[in-house]
């Protein structure tokens, strides 16, 4: 489990990444984007979908950015189907017809998902000094348990993996009220490593302050 200091430092790092994602998204759609302070938790992959606070029956569109190496896990951009269409409309413009343009929606969201998840993961990487080895992002549709099931399997995250770290940040695009989430999931091994790095970082800051 995390101490209060560890939670504080982790939230601070992830929040910096989330803020970056927000400004990048705002740049992409030309609207004001509000990002919420991320919610951090520790659970296992089996219970994950119950902790995130998204209706398990809701049809979602998602982009999964896996990473391997010394740290395994994945980051997800999650939007309801309707919000996915609304975001695509912002990106492509008025010519977007949701019924006819599945490929166009997939392509646009895959790229945005890639940019947003990279903003968060890249900020973590640059702060703690760990390099994430990314895979090509994957677009998926389904319910949250389906998306988490497939993504975890693809990312070789074991279903029984305990003490998984998740961080959920919600955002909304001003007047259209497009609401989405960015989720980061780490395997227990990656989680332990990240905590070690965070502790190391705090130690360095303390030394500098003395």
């Amino acid at each position: 489990m995390l101490t209060r200091e560890q939670t504080g430092t982790l939230t601070e790092i992830i929040n910096a990444g989330v803020k970056k994602a927000g400004s990048v998204l705002s740049e992409l759609v030309g609207r004001q984007v509000r990002m919420q302070v991320p919610l951090l938790g520790v659970t296992d992959f089996t219970n994950l979908h119950d902790c995130i606070g998204i209706d398990n029956n809701l049809q979602l569109v998602s982009v999964c950015q896996q990473f391997h190496g010394t740290m395994d896990g994945y980051a997800l951009l999650l939007l309801s189907r309707e919000n996915g269409d609304a975001l695509t409309q912002h990106l492509i413009g008025e010519g977007f017809d949701p019924s006819a343009m599945d490929v166009e929606r997939e392509e646009a969201l895959r790229e945005v998902g890639n940019i947003l998840t990279n903003s968060v993961l890249g900020t973590i990487s640059n702060t703690v000094g760990h390099r994430f080895e990314y895979q090509v992002p994957v677009y998926r549709q389904g319910t949250l348990p389906e998306i988490i099931g497939f993504s975890s399997c693809d990312a070789s995250c074991s279903v029984g993996d305990s003490h998984t770290l998740y961080a959920r940040a919600q955002f909304d695009i001003d007047d259209e009220r497009v609401v989405g989430s960015i989720l980061i999931l780490l395997t227990s091994r990656a989680f332990k490593l990240l905590i070690e790095m965070v502790d190391g970082l705090r130690f360095k800051v303390q030394l500098r302050q003395q």
Binding site: L28, E111, I115, N118, L121, G122, T123, S125, F132
Partner: peptide, 24 residues
């Protein structure tokens, strides 16, 4: 690239890339 990791940027420049821009 969407990858904002400083290590990735350095690797690309070492491999001869003349510049590295981030998406978008």
């Amino acid at each position: 690239s969407a990858d904002i990791q400083e290590t990735t940027r350095q690797e690309c420049l070492q491999l001869g890339a003349r510049d590295f821009l981030n998406k978008p």
